[in-house]
């Protein structure tokens, strides 16, 4: 919000990320679904305020990976450390990580039986234990930030897809997370609604939020990402800064993917 001035260079280039703390550390993370290996020794580090876009064909394990970071899926080997808290069976660690990591889903997953205001303020009240009045005024502020304060009393079914996804972002932000994960946030949207959602995500990126985004929107990746990660077959194939990734990909598979998608 603070430095939301549209800048020619990407956010990463004006910020010096090298000295930032490690927010997410993955070491040799592996996961199987029965016979099928979904993640194969995935290792990566994401710094504070960094925006990382994960690309790859469908079934490449990018969604599984991002969901492991929030422990919606449980990894079977390797370590995941989020903000110095390792994800283990420890109840306290799981609670801590989940309340520090916000997540936005492809299908929005708003709670259909609650109105928009309650959707956003429910978790702050019951998880963060905030008084209702404070939680609701914060929720209104967030709805204003994503541009739909007038819809507060409506129900999710009455909103368009783009509006629903913006509410979902507000809901995640209401928990005041330090990291945001986006799992294909625009894949279920009609083309004319993609832009309004991407704009919100862009502003969020410029405000200095640490983010991991799984997406197929190349333009968005070019504009916002500090770094790109290309996955295939559960492995990280290539990992590079945005500029180098598009201008000079090293791996053949990356080249093939880019040639198909661009």
């Amino acid at each position: 919000m603070t430095d939301a001035t549209p800048a020619e260079p990407t956010a990463g280039q004006i910020r010096d990320l090298s000295r930032g703390r490690d927010m997410i550390v993955c070491e040799d993370v592996s996961k199987w679904y029965g016979d099928f290996q979904a993640l194969d020794k995935v290792s990566a580090t994401i710094k504070e305020q960094e925006v990382v876009v994960v690309l790859g064909p469908s079934g490449s394990g990018k969604s599984t990976w991002i969901r492991c970071i929030n422990r919606l899926e449980i990894h079977q080997e390797g370590r995941i450390v989020v903000d110095d808290v390792e994800l283990t069976n420890d109840l306290r660690n799981i609670e801590k990580v989940r309340s520090e990591v916000g997540m936005v889903f492809q299908q929005f997953n708003l709670f259909p039986h609650l109105n928009i205001l309650d959707n956003v303020s429910l978790a702050p009240i019951w998880v963060r234990k905030k008084p209702r009045a404070e939680a609701e005024s914060q929720a209104m502020a967030l709805l204003e930030r994503v541009g739909i304060p007038e819809q507060a009393q409506k129900y999710p079914g009455q909103l368009s897809g783009g509006q629903q996804q913006r509410v979902a972002i507000a809901r995640a932000l209401a928990m005041e997370p330090r990291i945001m994960l986006f799992d294909e946030p625009t894949s279920a949207l009609d083309p004319e609604m993609i832009k309004e959602v991407l704009d919100v995500i862009k502003t969020l990126a410029l405000s200095g939020m640490t983010m991991m985004v799984v997406t197929h929107e190349m333009g968005f990746a070019k504009e916002v990402a500090d770094r790109l990660i290309f996955m295939e077959g559960g492995q990280i194939v290539e990992e590079n800064t945005t500029e180098l990734f598009f201008s000079n990909p090293t791996e053949d598979r990356t080249k093939l993917f880019l040639s198909q998608i661009l």
């Binding site: 929030n70 422990r71 919606l72 609670e95 989940r98 309340s99 990591v101 916000g102 997540m103 889903f105 299908q107 997953n109 708003l110 709670f111 259909p112 039986h113 429910l122 978790a123 019951w126 998880v127 979902a168 809901r171 995640a172 928990m175």
Partner: peptide, 24 residues
């Protein structure tokens, strides 16, 4: 997706059941 959304905002199983799953 409803279960996952509730998990993702940090609700406990009991909170998820009472506030999200049962009403629906």
């Amino acid at each position: 997706g409803q279960h996952e959304a509730a998990d993702a905002v940090g609700m406990t199983t009991a909170q998820k059941t009472v506030f999200i799953v049962l009403p629906q």
